[in-house]
Every structure is written in C-alpha cells, then in structure tokens.
Amino acid sequence: MSAKKSPEELKGIFEKYAAKEGDPNQLSKEELKLLLQTEFPSLLKGPSTLDELFEELDKNGDGEVSFEEFQVLVKKISQ
C-alpha cells in the first residue's frame, strides 16, 4: 500500500480491520498485526516489532489503537 492515501482512504482501511472483532472504532493487537502484515509488510520485522509498535501507538494504554493513534504511524512512515 502506498503511504500516500487520502484521509478517507486511511479511515476506510482502519475501519475494515477494526471491524473484525470487538470495538469497530479500535484496533486490537491482532487486528493491527493483520493490517500491518497486509498493508505495510515491511514494518513488521518480527514479533517484538509488533509489541514495540503497539505499545508506542497505544498512547492512552487501553490495549487498543484508535484511528487517531493509528494516524501517528501513518505520518511516521510517510515522511
């Protein structure tokens, strides 16, 4: 996936994966893993990378990643 996506496209991608289980407005760690493996495969170099990335993105510590938290990752990789 190209990092150059419109905000609407990014929101659609986020919602597609977030709706798989639990809260449709939040990504669980498994949903984030699936999204990254599919859309940004070069970001995941191993299991520790996912854990570190999830911890970094989950700013409020609720165990899930909101769209706002996800946007931090998108901004970081599009620079």
Rank of each mutant, 00 (worst) to 15 (best):
L57G: 04
L36E: 00
E21P: 01
F70V: 03
F14L: 00
K16E: 04
M1W: 00
V74M: 12
D51P: 13
V65S: 04
Q37D: 14
M1A: 00
I13S: 01
K59S: 12
E69I: 07
D62C: 03
S2P: 00
P41L: 06
K29C: 11
L35D: 00
G61M: 09
K76V: 02
L73M: 07
M1I: 13
E55Y: 14
L32D: 00
Q26M: 11
A18C: 02
P47R: 07
V65T: 13
I13P: 01
D58I: 13
Q79V: 05
A18P: 00
L57T: 08
D23C: 06
L57F: 10
P47E: 15
Q71Y: 03
L43P: 09
F70C: 03
L36Q: 00
L35T: 03
I13N: 00
Q26A: 07
S2T: 15
N25T: 11
P47G: 09
S66N: 12
E21Q: 09
G22A: 06
K4S: 11
P41D: 10
K45L: 10
N60H: 07
G61N: 06
L73R: 01
S78Q: 01
K59C: 12
E68I: 02
E69D: 12
T49W: 06
S48M: 07
S66K: 06
L34P: 09
S6Q: 06
S28I: 01
M1Y: 01
L32K: 00
K59F: 15
L73G: 08
A19D: 09
A19T: 15
L34M: 13
F54Y: 14
E55D: 13
F70L: 03
T38A: 13
E21H: 10
E9F: 04
E15F: 12
K59G: 15
E55S: 09
P41G: 11
P47T: 15
L34C: 08
L32S: 04
V72I: 10
E30N: 14
E56P: 15
F67G: 03
F67S: 05
S42M: 06
K45T: 11
P7N: 07
K75D: 07
E39T: 02
D23T: 12
P7D: 04
S48Y: 12
S2F: 15
Q79G: 15
L53P: 13
Q71T: 09
K45D: 15
F67C: 07
A3F: 15
E39R: 01
E64N: 09
A3Y: 15
K4A: 01
S42N: 11
F14R: 00
G63A: 10
T49Q: 14
M1S: 01
L27M: 07
L27I: 15
F54I: 14
P7R: 06
F40V: 06
P47H: 06
L36S: 01
A19K: 14
S28L: 02
E68C: 06
E21L: 03
K76D: 04
L32Y: 02
A3P: 04
F14S: 00
K76G: 12
E9I: 04
L53Q: 13
K16G: 02
L50T: 10
E69M: 13
K29S: 11
E30Q: 14
D58E: 04
L73K: 01
K75I: 03
L43F: 10
K29D: 11
G63H: 15
G61T: 12
P24Y: 06
L36V: 10
T49M: 05
F54E: 09
N25I: 13
S66V: 11
L43K: 11
L73V: 10
M1Q: 00
V74N: 11
E55W: 12
G63M: 10
L34W: 10
E55G: 12
V72G: 13
Q71G: 12
L73Y: 07
L57I: 15
E52D: 07
L36Y: 02
E9H: 05
P7F: 06
F54H: 07
K5I: 14
S42C: 06
E52A: 11
L10S: 02
K59T: 12
L27V: 10
L57H: 09
K4T: 14
K45C: 06
S42L: 06
L53R: 09
D62Q: 08
G12T: 15
E68K: 12
L53I: 14
A19E: 05
A3E: 05
K33C: 06
G61Q: 10
E55F: 14
A3N: 13
K5N: 07
K16I: 02
V65I: 12
S28Q: 11
L32V: 06
K4H: 11
L34H: 14
I77N: 09
K75F: 03
G12C: 04
N60G: 13
P7E: 13
S2L: 10
D51M: 12
K59Q: 10
I13G: 00
L27R: 00
V74F: 14
Y17H: 06
L10P: 01
N60S: 14
L73N: 01
K45Q: 14
L44N: 14
S2A: 04
A19P: 04
P24E: 07
S42F: 07
E56D: 06
E9D: 14
Q79C: 09
V74L: 10
K4W: 01
L36N: 00
G61H: 03
E31H: 10
E68D: 11
K16F: 05
L34S: 08
T49G: 08
D58F: 14
K76A: 02
E52P: 08
E55T: 12
V65H: 05
K59Y: 06
L73C: 15
L34F: 08
E15W: 08
K4V: 03
P7V: 07
K20N: 10
F14P: 00
E30C: 10
K11L: 05
S6L: 03
L50C: 14
L35C: 06
D58R: 06
L35R: 00
F14G: 00
E9A: 04
A18S: 07
E9C: 03
N60I: 11
G22P: 02
S66L: 04
Q71A: 09
F40K: 02
P7S: 12
K59L: 14
S42T: 15
D58P: 06
K33H: 08
F40Y: 10
P7H: 06
D23Q: 08
L53Y: 08
Q71D: 08
K5G: 10
T38Q: 12
A3I: 15
S2H: 05
K11G: 03
E39N: 04
S42R: 07
G22I: 01
K59V: 15
E15G: 07
T38V: 12
A18D: 00
Q26W: 13
E9W: 01
E31W: 03
I77A: 03
A19M: 10
P24R: 11
L27A: 04
L10W: 06
S66D: 05
D23W: 02
D23N: 10
L43V: 14
D51T: 08
G61A: 09
N60R: 12
V74S: 11
Y17P: 00
E52G: 13
E8F: 06
